[in-house]
Each structure stands twice: as structure tokens, then as C-alpha cells.
Design a protein around this nucleic acid. Structure first.
Lengths: 232, 232
DNA sequence: CGTTGAATTGAAAGTGATCAAGGCGTGTGG
DNA sequence: CCACACGCCTTGATCACTTTCAATTCAACG
């Protein structure tokens, strides 16, 4: 059992002193299982949630029920640093069983005021989130579907590697092709064909909840992936 | 000559007391003309910029030079509340002549710490920005091009109206069809046809830098536009 | 006037969606 | 143990929306 905020600390690069301060704001933990909508425990739950383990997706739906995933939430990510209690039009869904650490929001705010490094770290996270959203827009606007998928795989690879969840270019990808399709804005049928395309070209092995990137350089080439946008 | 932060204050709904505090952080102003890249005046310019008048676009480019606009910056918007000095991979371009107010970033930070209402206002802005980015992703993923354009027009209408720049469903839209295309992720040729489609259906009048939304309800219906995501 | 930027039109090609069906593994109940 | 249902992946054929390429119009401007 690793400490709850371990991966968060790795991401932010905070020093031990500040890590302790943030660890002290932990109130408890909560879990959801795959498929559940991650609603706050109560209407008055103003906690701040950090994902300890598991994957989640933030999404919006249109009237006809189709939904678009706008964001993947990975271990070490913050669910809702800045969100309103109601979360607005966004739904957060557990893609696997998910455990989150609950932090006391006022205490975190105080920690930010007392420790500039913590404030910097949090601002950096928000910045990085925005940058990922922009990169998704670029993928939708400028890349074809093959490139888009390649870019998403590179992004996930990079983000997971950063928190030590990638071994030898292989990592867990707990997404069905239908869920991938909801993130890429395409049909599951076409997603399947694009996946097969990358497989056929010996670029990736994928299936059973895992991906193995066989040729990282070529994949990044196809995606025109530049990790700079992910660095704080 | 309206006070520099006037539109910003309207957006955030701050009270006069807090408005004065923020006004006191103004160091000066800067201008760019249409087409210019809005770089900071110097490498060490750590000011925070609020758009006083004019439009700008944030964009990213791929190697082949094609660029994707990820964001429009309108009067009252903050250019770079949270950005790094280098702005990362993003470029900000003036779409018209643009005037910005330069605020002293440390002073703003102090203002936020001293006045919770200011902190709330700023967090609200960041939240709203993220929400707009997500709505763009939804448009790309779920809406066809006609709906996407309709949604963008509704968004701009709503954002401009909020700061008093819309009169009777008519407002300035200082974008060429090619620039619209760069935001919508489609070719200028197809943009032209989609624009004509909305025109033919008597939904909008558009041209010469202005739009007139003839049938707001139908347009929102087509776009499945719900302004909730824009409210703080 | 010639030039330039923007809007417009036409025809052909292509990418991705849609519709429909089949395969495969797993779990469950008869 | 077998039948069946279910979730997920896969395949094929067809259709539609968008792109691409090539030209044309038009107004503003020097």
C-alpha cells in the first residue's frame, strides 16, 4: 500500500517538507467501481480529490445520449481542483475501480498560501490540464484519425511514465475500443479499423487491457507528438 | 475611453471595493495590430494581460505550418493568467488591433490573498476557460460542421453579450472565413459552404466583419447550445 | 489598370460514418 | 454439460460529409 499522494508528489516534484504539509490535509479515501459515476459523497462534500489508483474519464453528453470524453484522469491526477460543487455539465466516470484521496479544500488553500512551492505546483497542474485540452483540440482539428489515436497513445504513455506506471514501453490501457472511440470522436467500428492499422504496421500490440508500444519513435512521428506541452 | 478593466469587472461581477484593488495593479497598456503575434514586451515581462479591446486567437501549429486555433480571446478576457513566460507551444495572434492592460502579477497575487472575492473571481475565470475548451472538444467529437459553426457563433454571441458588446443579436465578428476555418478544423472552402448553408436557411446574416443572428432559438437548437457551461 | 486578399463555385477523390452481421470468450441457468 | 445471452471485437458493403484541386468573381487599393 503506497502512500496516497505518492504519485501526485512525483508529478509535482514537491520537496519532502511540502509533501508532508499536503499529506496532512488528507481526510480519508473513497472508492468507486468500474462504470460508476463518481459523484461526491454528499451534496456538501467540498473535498478535493486526488486519484490514488485507477482510471476515470470526464465526459459530456448531448441530448441523444452520445457522450464525448474530454479528459482521462490517471493516478496522481487531481479530479476537481477548481470545479464547482455541481461539476457543471461534466460527468466523471470510473473506467476501472478507482480509489481517491480526499483532501480538505480549505487546508489545501492555506497550504498554498503558506508555501509558494505548493501554489506553484498547483498552478502548474492546472496549466498542464489546459495544455492537454488544447492538444486534444489540435488533434481533432489537424490530425486524421490514425494520427489522433497515435497521439492519444503517446500522451497516455508519457503521462503514465511520469508516475512510474510504464515498464518498457508497455502499460495498462483499461479502455474498451468503444471507450477509446468516445474519446477520439469516432465510431467504434472505425476505431477498430484504425487500431488494426497500427497493429498491422507493427507499431503497437494492444488488447486485454494493455498496450505495448513496439516502435515509439515511429508512433511519435506519426502523431507528431512533442511532449513539451506536458511539461510544467 | 472606458476604464481599462471595465469589461473584466463586468464579467467577474466584482464589487466596487475589489474593483479598485485590481485597478490599482495596472502598470500600463500595450497594443498590437492585426496579424501580429502578441509576444511579451520583453523576456522578463511577467505582467498579466487583460484584453481591453480587440480580438486575439490562441493557436498551435504543426510542422507543415497548418495551425489550429484553440481559443478566442475577447475584450475582458485574461490572456495569460496562468501561462508560463514562454507560453509553451501556444501562439497568441491579434485578429484585430488589440489593446491590453498590463497588471503587476505579484500585486494581483497579493490582491487574491487579501480578498477572497478576487480569488474566487479568478478561479471562476480559469474554470470557465477550461469549460470552453471542453465544449470545443465536444463540438469536434459530436457535432457535424454545421452544428459546430452554429455552436461557435452561439458561444461568441453569449460571451460578447455578457460584456455588452452585442446589440440586438448583432455583433462584430472580425474573422475571415479562413480564420473561422482554422478554429473549426475545416477547410476554408467547406467553411464557406457551411456559412452559406446557415445564410440560406435565414438563420444568420454574416459578412463585412459582423454577424446578425436572425433566429437565435433555431441556431441554439441546431447547435444544441446550453449556456450553462459558460456561467461561473 | 494590375494586383492582392477574400469569398465563391464546380468536380473529383477520399475519409470516416452507417447499417448489418458474424465470431469469440465468459458466465449463468437449466 | 449444454444452451443461451452478453460484452467486446471484427468484417463487409454502402453512403455521406469533407477535402482537394482548380478557377472565377469581386472589392479594395496603390
Amino acid at each position: 500500500m503506497t502512500p496516497p499522494l505518492d504519485l501526485f508528489h512525483i508529478r509535482t516534484g514537491l520537496q519532502p517538507a511540502e509533501r508532508e504539509v499536503l499529506d496532512a490535509t488528507i481526510l480519508g479515501s473513497a472508492t468507486w467501481s468500474r462504470g460508476e459515476t463518481m459523484l461526491p459523497a454528499s451534496d456538501r462534500d467540498d473535498n478535493l480529490h486526488v486519484i490514488v489508483s485507477g482510471w476515470a474519464a470526464r465526459s459530456r453528453a448531448l441530448r441523444d445520449g452520445v457522450r464525448q470524453i474530454t479528459d482521462f484522469l490517471l493516478p496522481g491526477d487531481v479530479c476537481d481542483f477548481l470545479t464547482t460543487p455541481t461539476n457543471g455539465p461534466d460527468a466523471v466516470t470510473a473506467l476501472t475501480d478507482v480509489t481517491v484521496a480526499q483532501l480538505d479544500r480549505p487546508a489545501v488553500r492555506r497550504a498554498m498560501q503558506a508555501h509558494p512551492a505548493i501554489e506553484q505546483a498547483v498552478l502548474g497542474l492546472v496549466l498542464a490540464d489546459q495544455s492537454v485540452l488544447r492538444s486534444w483540440i489540435v488533434s481533432f482539428g489537424l490530425r486524421d484519425k490514425r494520427e489522433h489515436l497515435a497521439h492519444l497513445l503517446c500522451e497516455l504513455h508519457h503521462r503514465l511514465k511520469r508516475v512510474g506506471l510504464v515498464g518498457d514501453h508497455e502499460f495498462e490501457l483499461p479502455l474498451t475500443q468503444a471507450e477509446l472511440a468516445e474519446a477520439l470522436g469516432m465510431t467504434n467500428v472505425h476505431t477498430n479499423r484504425v487500431v488494426q492499422g497500427l497493429r498491422r504496421d507493427q507499431l503497437i500490440e494492444i488488447g486485454e487491457g494493455r498496450v505495448h508500444i513496439l516502435h515509439p519513435l515511429k508512433l511519435r512521428e506519426i502523431a507528431e507528438f512533442n511532449s513539451a506541452y506536458l511539461e510544467s
